[in-house]
């Protein structure tokens, strides 16, 4: 069994009276590309900052690659973190960024970084402040990857990018993953992107983990049940109702089969990733989920 890339128990972060993250318990195996989704203020950035060691938990336990985040230089070298809006130094050139990366990181792979910059077509002499949003993101990604970490963490890497730049960024990131065998955790509002590149999902809302797991397992365990009213009242043990909607004749449920046995449920239909995520987000906010309605013909 390889070391989990992220393991937390009852991880909690408070700022004064405000709880940014409450009781998060997670276990993410190595080699995954993890999508962290949830509304603004859900605690996504807090969780990522805790994982990269930028902040310390108020209570609970967190281990990244089996060790306390930012414990020492070796641990720091193992984790690449790109903060929101993929920050670069506007006054420094692309080449300056690479020199800086080389001086600051003992594990820096200079040939890799230069090859990547050349293939991206970035002019080394250009000031980073004059790059486009997509190019800045690519530069930040290259620097994070060139230190050859075992885990890359991105906070909303593509939020500010246009669709073309977004796709180019994800192409490049996936190429890194294929080449460097690195685990990735990224937060995003775009479920479509998550579906495309991620194989593990964490849904965060109201400072709490709503659901987490390998996407394939989650999709196989979530169902939409539709039946005449009253017929769906008795569900087998371990089948949790995430959302329920009743008309005078009909009941629609979104359920999570937590038994791991792939129970045969009468009238069960599949739920797409986006609908599944939205159902959890609505439940967290105490709203009825519009996802109960059939959305796919």
């Amino acid at each position: 069994m390889s070391t989990p890339v992220l393991s937390t128990t009852a991880l909690t972060k408070r700022y004064g009276k405000h709880t940014a993250l409450a009781e998060a318990t997670l276990d993410i195996p190595a080699g995954r590309i993890v999508g962290l989704v949830g509304p603004n203020g859900a605690g996504k950035s807090t969780l990522l900052a805790l994982a990269s060691g930028l902040i310390r938990p108020t209570s609970g336990r967190i281990e990244v690659l089996g060790r306390t985040p930012a414990a020492d230089s070796a641990q720091l070298a193992d984790v690449g973190f790109v903060a929101q809006d993929t920050p670069v130094y506007a006054g420094l050139s692309v080449a300056d960024h690479l020199s800086l990366g080389e001086h600051l990181n003992p594990t820096w792979d200079d040939a890799f970084a230069r090859d990547r910059i050349a293939r991206l077509g970035l002019d080394p002499a250009k000031k980073a402040g004059r790059l486009s949003g997509g190019q800045k993101a690519q530069l930040a990604l290259t620097i994070a990857a060139a230190k050859r970490p075992r885990l890359l963490i991105f906070d909303e890497p593509v939020a500010a990018l246009d669709p073309l730049a977004r796709r180019a960024f994800l192409q490049n990131l996936m190429e890194f993953v294929a080449e460097l065998e690195v685990s990735v955790i990224l937060s995003s509002h775009l479920i479509g992107d998550v579906e495309r590149v991620c194989d593990h999902l964490i849904v965060l809302a109201e400072s709490r983990v709503q659901v987490a797991g390998d996407i394939e397992d989650l999709l196989a365990a979530h169902h939409r049940l539709v039946g005449p009213r009253g017929t769906l009242d008795a569900l087998p043990d371990g089948v949790k109702v995430i959302a329920a909607d009743h008309t005078d004749r009909q009941t629609t449920l979104i359920v999570h089969d937590t038994t791991g046995d792939h129970l045969e449920l009468p009238g069960a239909d599949s739920v797409g990733l986006e609908d599944m995520v939205l159902t959890y987000l609505h439940r967290a906010e105490g709203l009825t989920a519009p996802t109960l309605q059939e959305t796919r013909a």
Binding site: G31, N172, A178, R196
Partner: peptide, 15 residues
């Protein structure tokens, strides 16, 4: 190759 596919259509290499 896996690398060619992911670089082209931006999907998870494991897929």
């Amino acid at each position: 190759t896996v690398k060619q596919v992911v670089a082209k259509i931006a999907i998870n290499p494991n897929t």
